[in-house]
Design a protein around this nucleic acid. Structure first.
Lengths: 203, 203, 203, 203
DNA sequence: CATGAATGAGAGTTCATTCAT
DNA sequence: GATGAATGAACTCTCATTCAT
């Protein structure tokens, strides 16, 4: 579509993306066909092709929306007077929610998509997100160490470790299944390693 | 196939599984069709159906073979006079090799398979393998603590943490890509947390 | 469109026909879709349907324009003091130019159109053009014979023969390809058969 | 199909080609879809793809069969004691039959195919056939001149002229339509130009 | 008049699965 | 047991044509 889309078209495109998102959450990526999305949106075959030319393109745009929304949620939740520990716990709590949602998540679809599309480094949004998350956690830990909330010798190593643990939990949730207890224990372990073993219940 | 198969059949079945394994390593799970396997084995379409009725069944049997072989490798490599640290390092070294092989691994296929077939807990080989590995690592750490090689307050927590880190590295290798350095740093971090920060180079 | 069209509409219609002509020259007839013409004209899908209801209709009108223009060109080029041989050579020279333009011609589109639309004799513009051309050439030869320029026993037969040779060259140009030399030789042969074997170079 | 086909497959392939030939004669080339051929052969969609992967491939093989058969017909019809004039007349008679069959011919399909597939010179079977035919006619005329049957100053030129006339008639038969009389007149004209104006009726 | 979003029929193609030999 | 031809359901994608605005 080289031409500008009117307001109506923009809304329809958004509607398709939101509907497709649900389909991807249910079925993952590979299994989803253009017809699945057509049916879910209750539009015509050709109609979908007016907006998107493949499931890959749709999925990429779904992910773009997704990460924008995620950014919003995260920045919203950081208040001025929150301590580093507060924010970290908040972050982990969000992750836990996500982890336990299992079938209500794009996780599986994202993994499948990346299996199918071995993207070059610079196109790899997933990698960018991962690296960005590591950076943020690192800063957080540093701030916590500075304020005396955390104890940590190797902030970057710990940040990376946290992210790999979270990745491990994420994929495990999809394959072997994990319980809330498992997540709690891991997160408790993370906090403990920072010297802040607070109450488990808080998550 | 409720009936006995002759020697010839057994060999053919094994041949199919070994060939299929290569196909799964190349293409993952979902992309593989019965025809792919038929072509790779250079047998007839109908012939394959005499032994297996779906790619899922074939894959399950490939995984069964795989884990049997893996067990052998691991127990072979444990000598009588090896210390806990030796064995752990050996284990991590094996994991590293596996992680960096990327395209020569069943990892992606396994994940894809589990995405598609949400198995009940008792059928979930992956979970069994995960739990077994946690147990072994835990015992290892306990042994190391007993012998003074390691320092660790929460052996089980640490074992679990190690496994989730490994899982995180495994999936990351398939999606965002990881370098040998990344693996080294994580493994170094693991050892350091046990109080055994030896030389990185050793892996 | 039974109603009168304003000046604006007439111009737009002409614009569409001229643009469509280029499209037909590039792609032939069958391959051209309404969308191709819509895109080339940079108008709306529905807009095109206001003027034309099918590619066939458009093509027919393009051909109508085409033959009107061709007539003009031909009558323009006949001056009062030109001899029969002059005019014939002029005609053949025009044909040669047309033949060698190959991809810049409606020829292929015309053939495709007539393949698809087996028109009744009275609707067949192509036939009318062919017969008219035969007539003109016949008159020309007769004039040449009268003036002593040509020698010919059977003017009509020769005229027909010339036209079929030209048709043969035209279709051959589109299918097996012809060189300038081939055309020259054929035209030289035509002139020679009329006893006017002038210089080949003249064409 | 990289493997050898059994006797059965060969027959089925031939059956498909023969059926497809009829379809091409009816509809030309472009209009014909894989489904048309599937329906005509009364086989399954997938079944056709076992033998051919496109209408182009099918058409090429149909043409190959066609030209093989044509060669056979031609060489069969040349007897030892036939004169050059006999053979030429025989040839023209065959052409006439072909020309007047109109809708029972591959001509249109062949032209359409070559419009769509602008083949390089060496792949262009049509060109090879054309050149071969010119050669044969030339030899025939030379033989006729030698035996005193024909009079001809430029055998090659005449041979080419004959072929272009035949091409012109062929395409005209498809577009503007021609009558038996038209063909007779042209062929009579050809023979007359060779000094052998025999009886028209003979064709 | 003009627009362009929407429709849906239909073409191409692939593959798991069956079945006569 | 083994073969491989055959089937047909399901997918992708394109386009003429319509119609509300």
């Amino acid at each position: 579509m080289g031409y500008d889309m009117g307001e109506k078209s923009v809304q329809k495109k958004k509607f398709i993306l939101e509907t497709a998102r649900k389909v991807f959450m249910e079925k993952g990526f590979k299994k989803v066909t253009m017809k699945d999305i057509v049916d879910a949106c209750d539009i015509s075959r050709g109609g979908l092709y007016l907006y998107f030319e493949s499931t890959s393109q749709i999925f990429l745009e779904v992910m773009k929306l997704e990460s924008e929304e995620a950014d919003d949620v995260f920045s919203d939740s950081i208040t001025e007077d929150a301590t580093a520990a507060d924010i970290l716990i908040l972050f982990l709590r969000e992750q836990k929610k996500e982890l336990l949602r299992k079938n209500d998540t794009l996780t599986q679809a994202i993994y499948e998509f990346y299996f199918q599309n071995k993207l070059s480094k610079k196109d790899n949004i997933l990698k960018k997100q991962f690296d960005a998350a590591v950076k943020i956690i690192e800063k957080l830990i540093e701030a916590g160490v500075a304020s005396g909330e955390f104890y940590c010798e190797d902030c970057m190593g710990t940040a990376r470790n946290i992210m790999f643990v979270l990745e491990g939990l994420k994929i495990s949730a999809q394959t072997i299944g994990i319980t809330a207890e498992t997540v709690d224990r891991e997160m408790f372990y993370i906090l403990k390693s920072l010297g802040t073993a607070e109450e488990k219940a808080e998550l």
